[in-house]
């Protein structure tokens, strides 16, 4: 009399867990390659989605800001270059419909100089109707040209930001990535960071993610991996597979309300991971 209803409840709950989509929203800021020997035209796609699952993707308004920050020379302040004029609206496949997303091609003449380029997207707040909250994800991705380091370790004063302690474009598989979660420049202790693998390759010709993912996770906790920053706001994560890993520190920005609803200002940082090539020659 007691066990059956309980069993039904458990089965129902488990079924909903199994079928529920991952809840981690990720602003994907994608360019194919971040460690370049020479400057070249850089294609970008900006898609608000669920990184591991590859869907659903959400409608994305034109970002409030899209720019890169670059330090022209050691000892000089970094300079920002506005990239909003390069944005083009596209539609991106999301389940059975298409949603607004963005693409851009940054011309070589803007990114030909040696050094680091911190690309930043500051989106408009997105109303997540299911949770009745706004989400605003400040997203960074870094590109290096020619191997000369630049401002990769500088923070940019974003409301929510991940301060990289490793170059995000220079990571071997199994290496450890480290960062600090910042709220208005102040480290955030013991805050939650979601880590997700960009599991579905971009099919840019058809403006969709490929249906087949790279990984099948055996458990939801391995799709959106949750870690905490330490008492100093620092975190570390060993990168187990080549490709793109996204770090999202949730609701760390100082503004907590937008248009009369709760606002989550999140910090996103994308890290590109490279497989160690086969060893050649005699091991020293």
């Amino acid at each position: 009399m007691f066990l059956r209803p309980l069993a039904v409840l458990l089965v129902t709950a488990m079924a909903s867990l199994v079928t529920a989509p991952a809840t981690a929203h990720f602003l994907v800021v994608h360019t194919p390659k971040t460690a370049l020997l020479r400057g070249e035209d850089l294609p970008f796609h900006l898609i608000f989605t669920h990184a591991f699952a590859g869907e659903p993707s959400m409608a994305m308004d034109k970002p409030e800001r899209f720019y890169f920050s670059r330090r022209p020379a050691a000892g000089e302040p970094s300079e920002e270059v506005d990239l909003l004029p390069y944005l083009q609206a596209i539609d991106w496949q999301s389940e059975d419909s298409r949603v607004p997303a963005w693409r851009a091609t940054i011309p070589r003449n803007l990114v030909r100089s040696l050094g680091d380029y911190q690309f930043v997207v500051e989106p408009a707040p997105y109303l997540e109707a299911g949770e009745d909250i706004y989400i605003q994800q400040f997203a960074k991705v870094m590109v290096n040209v020619g191997g000369v380091p630049g401002n990769w370790s500088e923070t940019l004063g974003l409301p929510a930001e991940i301060h990289a302690l490793n170059k995000p474009y220079a990571n071997w598989t199994s290496g450890v990535f480290r960062g600090v979660v910042l709220s208005d420049g102040v480290p955030v202790p013991f805050t939650q960071i979601e880590v997700e693998y960009l599991n579905h390759a971009l099919d840019v010709d058809n403006r969709r993610f490929e249906e087949q993912g790279q990984i099948t996770a055996p458990h939801p906790s391995l799709e959106a991996i949750v870690i905490l920053s330490n008492a100093q706001g620092e975190f570390s994560f060993a990168l187990p597979k080549a490709g793109w890993w996204g770090f999202a520190a949730l609701n760390v920005g100082p503004t907590k309300e937008h248009a009369g609803k709760p606002l989550s200002q999140d910090a996103i940082l994308w890290v590109q991971v490279t497989d160690l090539p086969p060893l050649t020659g005699t091991r020293p």
Partner: peptide, 21 residues
Amino acid sequence: LFDCFDNGDETLTCEGGFSDG
């Protein structure tokens, strides 16, 4: 580290640096 670019106006610009910054 070193590279050069054609400026499209019959000039070229070369840039150099070192891997440690």
